[in-house]
Nucleic acid binder design. Structure first.
Lengths: 321, 321
DNA sequence: CACGGCTCTCGACAAAAGTCAAACCGAGCG
DNA sequence: CGCTCGGTTTGACTTTTGTCGAGAGCCGTG
């Protein structure tokens, strides 16, 4: 019985333990193995998503602030991660919440578009495993040539792995040197199909990037600091799935955007549920831009940003009236 | 801090413990309460469905037998509870599986029709709690006048309670003494609406009853042993939601059926997912009848019954060819 | 205002679960 | 044939968790 105790035994152990509520030693007896092995199987079962432990994220929607934001911003749902006393690690807390929310949104048979960035990768990294069936995770934008710690394909693959889903990668650079080349590449059947398939997604996960020297598109070498500055002066307000957007949330009319291989904002907008996650307070302006463009339907933010958003929305309304 | 530690604290504790993976004493520190309280909150969190622990039921669909049955019977999904060595309690095992399957099928916003019987009640009884939102559980058939251990309204309410859903009961007797009265009652607005609302359900849970002296409709006094015998001779093959069906799965043309207040088989059939659970081996014939009528789309049975079903289906096919 | 009744809370103990190094076992290989 | 290697399994040990009865704060009531 040394061969492949795997799946079958893990399943049985998980079943007896979690569904029937037996103790580990009882399970061990039933299965005629030692209790230590049972403990180990159960860990594997949790790690592979054979058992799902999920906490309701209702607490974070119940928040009055969240409700008001939903109304003010016309979003389907908002979750607010508290940033006070009882939080363990403020920086990952938003990601933990986002991961839970994400898992709650995913259903069997879904097709999920995933962008990239530190936030998305953090979420992928802490997300628990789940044993979904028939799920496809597609990469929303081209890859980075340079080695970078959280590449688009890594984000996609990691999330696919966690969901036990199929990962569809995108084998094209994020940004090319000339517009012609970008056009030509977009016309390639492999790429074209992938791009066309994006609007078939019913769930998207992404964050928004800043347009300063700290922006991930700068750090990864897609743009230089000075190029970015030029773009900023030209109206750049944020980065979504590798593309520059202006304050209205529209794709900025610039050479860089035309050289990018990524999901069109239009096809992104066709996706039913679009979950945007913003971790840093410094992303406030980009976030406003993304919201202005109606780029997301579901939002996860920290309490401080949430408050600023509400203040801002209130101010705008007041000014308008 | 002695007042209403409730919801809020429970949520926080559950969040820190399950989502962040802190230890109970760490949670206790964070929340400035004793570890014992944390343990107690966590239990409550589990009991109320604030955290969900669910085991994948894939093991039971992966079974080759299940797959073959799905094909042979043209069902959407079949789960087979093993009835051998490693099972704890053969009689409840099917119910435990059914409960898991049921919870896996329920989604936010669903409207669920629930019939009654020992099987359904057992499922309700062992089903873990879940914190669904916007879910409505409706009773599929009239109530029993006589006190009986598992009444239709109990089944409905218990399941509603477990799901934290709204329960819609049916305040009419299951069976009346005359056809006229039944007709009149069905025409009553309250009742008519409820009956009409049944086809709006997207999930149904029921079992099938036998047509012998042990049948629950006999035990609850809706029919006498001799009446049942007459019906059996007239072609009765099973009981679904309080109604008698023949071997083809059609409602039997008899006075009893006309005196019953219950979901029409037609509106039942309009429900997208219809989960039928059969615990006892003795329900084989009624099960065949229900299957013949295409009354269910999802099936949970024990291994022995499953095998007999497959043999039977094979024999029929062979005979036909 | 003293009295149960109520719920929440805590400390201490017992039970259960997690962990780790060592043993084991078959497979492949020199 | 005897070796190592990767994996599983185990017993023994430690840590974590569940539980229980007692105590503390907070009512409404007599």
């Amino acid at each position: 019985m040394a061969i492949r105790p795997a799946e079958q035994l893990i399943h049985k152990a998980a079943w007896l333990y979690y569904a029937h509520g037996l103790r580990q030693d009882e399970v061990a007896n039933q299965l005629k193995i030692s209790r230590a092995s049972v403990a180990m199987y159960l860990r594997k079962a949790r790690e592979t998503g054979i058992v799902n432990i999920s906490t309701s994220t209702q607490l974070f929607t119940d928040d009055v602030l969240a409700r008001r934001l939903e109304d003010a911003l016309k979003l389907d749902a908002v979750w607010i991660a508290p940033e006070n006393a009882y939080v363990v690690d403020p920086s990952t807390d938003i990601a933990v919440l986002a991961a839970s929310v994400f898992l709650e949104l995913v259903k069997k048979g879904d097709r999920i578009g995933v962008a990239w960035g530190r936030t998305v990768y953090t979420i992928a990294d802490i997300m628990s495993f789940a044993d979904l069936q028939d799920v496809t995770v597609v990469q929303l934008c081209g890859n980075l040539g340079a080695p970078y710690s959280y590449r688009p394909d890594q984000c996609t693959m990691e999330i696919a792995r966690r969901l036990n889903a199929k990962g569809l990668n995108f084998y094209a650079p994020l940004v090319l040197s000339t517009e012609e080349l970008a056009r030509a590449l977009r016309a390639e059947p492999v790429i074209r199909e992938q791009l066309a398939g994006i609007s078939d997604c019913n769930l998207a996960l992404f964050s928004v990037g800043t347009v300063d020297a700290d922006s991930h598109v700068v750090k990864c070498g897609a743009l230089t600091v000075s190029e970015m500055e030029v773009l900023r002066n030209a109206g750049a307000a944020g980065v979504i799935a590798g593309q520059i957007i202006d304050a209205a949330g529209e794709a900025l009319d610039c050479s860089y955007n035309r050289r990018v291989i990524s999901a069109e904002l239009g096809s992104l907008g066709a996706i039913e549920k679009r979950l945007m996650v913003v971790q840093e307070d410094s992303k406030f302006e980009p976030l406003l831009a993304a919201l202005a463009g109606g780029l997301c339907t579901h939002l996860v933010v920290g309490a401080r940003v949430a408050q600023r958003l509400l203040d801002h929305a209130g101010a705008v309304t007041k000014k308008a009236s």
